[in-house]
Structures are given as structure tokens and as C-alpha cells.
Lab assay of single mutants.
Amino acid sequence: ETWTVFRRYSRFREMHKTLKLKYAELAALEFPPKKLFGNKDERVIAERRSHLEKYLRDFFS
């Protein structure tokens, strides 16, 4: 099953920080790092999307 969620990266990062405070075991999940430069580059966006998808798969498993 596939879901499509339209949210900004910052909202996922905020969710991760909030949940990590409540559920300490989530700290073990690696959240994709923020890029200061090149964040509009298609390659960077695709890489971030891939890392975010892995994070979410790990989160829900």
C-alpha cells in the first residue's frame, strides 16, 4: 500500500522532535539531516525524500 502525504520537510522534523520528547525510544530513528545549501536542487530533494521515506517505514514498523 502506498500513501502520498504533502507536507513540508520542516513539519516532519517538528513531528519527529515532538514525538521524541514523548517516546524516548524514537531517538534511535535517524531523521534525515537538514541541508543549508542546495535544498532546491532536484538531486538533494530526491535524496531527502528517499531518506524521509526510510525514516517513515522504520517509524511505522
Rank of each mutant, 00 (worst) to 15 (best):
Y9Q: 03
V5M: 12
E1R: 14
K35V: 05
R11Q: 08
D41Q: 09
V44A: 11
S10H: 00
L29W: 14
F60E: 00
L21R: 13
R7A: 11
E30Q: 11
T18S: 08
L36G: 02
T2C: 03
R49M: 03
K54T: 10
T4G: 12
R48Y: 06
T2K: 04
Y9T: 07
S61M: 09
K54Q: 04
V5Q: 09
R57D: 01
R43P: 10
F31Y: 05
E30P: 10
S61I: 12
L26K: 06
A27E: 01
S10F: 12
Y9I: 13
G38C: 03
L56T: 10
T4V: 05
W3D: 10
N39M: 09
A24T: 08
S10M: 10
P33M: 13
W3G: 11
A46E: 11
A24K: 11
P33H: 12
K20D: 00
L56W: 07
L26I: 09
D58F: 11
D58Y: 15
R11W: 14
A27N: 05
K54F: 02
P33E: 00
L21D: 12
Y23M: 11
N39E: 04
F6K: 04
K22H: 01
L56H: 00
T4C: 12
R57Y: 04
D58C: 10
K54C: 01
A24L: 05
K54A: 06
D41I: 15
M15Q: 00
P32H: 13
T2I: 12
E47G: 14
R49V: 04
R11M: 15
F12W: 10
T2P: 11
F31H: 06
L36Q: 00
S61P: 05
R7L: 10
R8P: 09
R13M: 08
R57I: 04
K22T: 07
E25W: 10
E53L: 15
R49I: 15
E47S: 12
E42Q: 09
T18F: 13
E25A: 05
E53Y: 15
P33D: 00
Y9H: 08
E25L: 03
Y9W: 11
L26W: 10
F31D: 00
F12M: 08
S10D: 06
T18G: 06
I45K: 14
R13E: 05
L56R: 02
E47D: 13
E53A: 13
A46Q: 10
V5E: 03
F60R: 02
W3C: 01
R49D: 13
R48Q: 05
E30L: 15
P33T: 10
R43K: 10
F59S: 00
W3K: 09
K40Q: 07
S61A: 06
R48C: 08
R7G: 13
W3I: 02
V44Q: 11
L29R: 07
T18C: 08
E42P: 05
D41F: 13
S50P: 11
H51A: 11
E1W: 04
K22G: 03
G38T: 09
K20C: 02
A28Q: 06
T2R: 10
K54V: 05
R43M: 05
D41Y: 11
T4F: 08
R7E: 05
S61W: 15
G38H: 08
H51Q: 10
E1K: 06
L21P: 00
G38P: 05
K54W: 03
A28M: 04
E25R: 05
T2W: 08
S50C: 14
R8C: 14
H16S: 09
R57S: 04
K54G: 07
V5L: 11
R49Y: 01
Y55Q: 08
V44N: 09
R8S: 12
R8H: 07
L52E: 01
W3P: 00
V5K: 15
W3S: 08
F6N: 03
H16E: 01
F12L: 12
Y23H: 08
F59E: 02
T18D: 01
F31G: 00
M15K: 02
E1Y: 03
E47T: 12
R7K: 14
F59V: 08
A28C: 07
Y9V: 10
D41A: 13
E25G: 04
L21M: 13
H51V: 13
G38A: 07
F37T: 02
R7W: 11
V44D: 14
L26S: 01
W3M: 06
A27Q: 13
T4R: 06
Y55F: 13
T4M: 09
K22S: 00
E42L: 13
R11G: 10
E53T: 15
S10T: 13
F12T: 00
E42T: 12
E14H: 12
E47V: 07
D58L: 09
L52S: 02
I45A: 13
F6T: 05
S50Y: 02
K22M: 08
F60T: 01
L19S: 00
D41N: 12
E47W: 10
F60Q: 00
S10Y: 02
K35E: 01
E14Y: 01
S61Q: 12
T4E: 14
F6W: 09
Y55M: 13
L29M: 15
R7Q: 13
D41H: 10
P33I: 14
L52C: 05
R57H: 02
L52D: 01
A27T: 12
L19I: 03
D58P: 12
V44T: 14
N39L: 11
Y9N: 12
T4Y: 08
D58A: 12
F60C: 06
L19C: 02
S61C: 04
L19K: 00
R11T: 09
K20W: 01
N39V: 10
E14A: 05
F37E: 04
L19G: 00
R48G: 12
I45T: 13
E47K: 10
F59A: 02
L29Y: 05
N39T: 05
I45G: 14
E30F: 15
Y9K: 09
L21C: 08
K22W: 14
H16G: 14
P33S: 11
E53D: 08
V5G: 14
K22D: 00
E1D: 10
Y55C: 14
A28H: 02
H51R: 13
N39A: 13
K17F: 01
V44L: 07
L26A: 02
V5T: 12
F59K: 07
K35Q: 06
F60P: 01
R49A: 07
L56A: 09
F31T: 00
K54S: 07
E25T: 03
Y23A: 11
T2M: 03
D58Q: 08
R11D: 06
K35G: 08
R49T: 05
L21Q: 13
R48W: 14
L21T: 09
W3F: 12
A46G: 14
F37R: 05
K17D: 03
R48L: 11
G38D: 01
F6G: 07
N39R: 11
R11H: 08
T18E: 06
K54Y: 15
M15P: 00
H16T: 13
S61K: 10
N39S: 10
E25Y: 03
S10V: 07
E42V: 10
P32E: 04
P32Q: 06
H16Q: 07
L19T: 01
A46L: 05
R48M: 13
R57A: 04
H16L: 15
A46S: 13
V44G: 13
F60I: 08
F37N: 00
R13Q: 04
T18P: 03
L21F: 02
K22A: 07
L19M: 13
L26Q: 00
K20L: 02
T4W: 11
P32M: 13
F60K: 02
Y23L: 14
A24E: 07
E14F: 04
A28V: 00
K54I: 05
R11F: 13
A46N: 14
G38Q: 09
A28G: 08
E14M: 04
D58G: 11
W3E: 09
E47N: 12
E47R: 12
H51N: 04
E25F: 06
T18V: 10
A27V: 09
H51Y: 06
D41P: 07
G38I: 05
R57E: 02
A28F: 08
T18I: 15
E30C: 15
N39F: 06
T4N: 15
T18M: 09
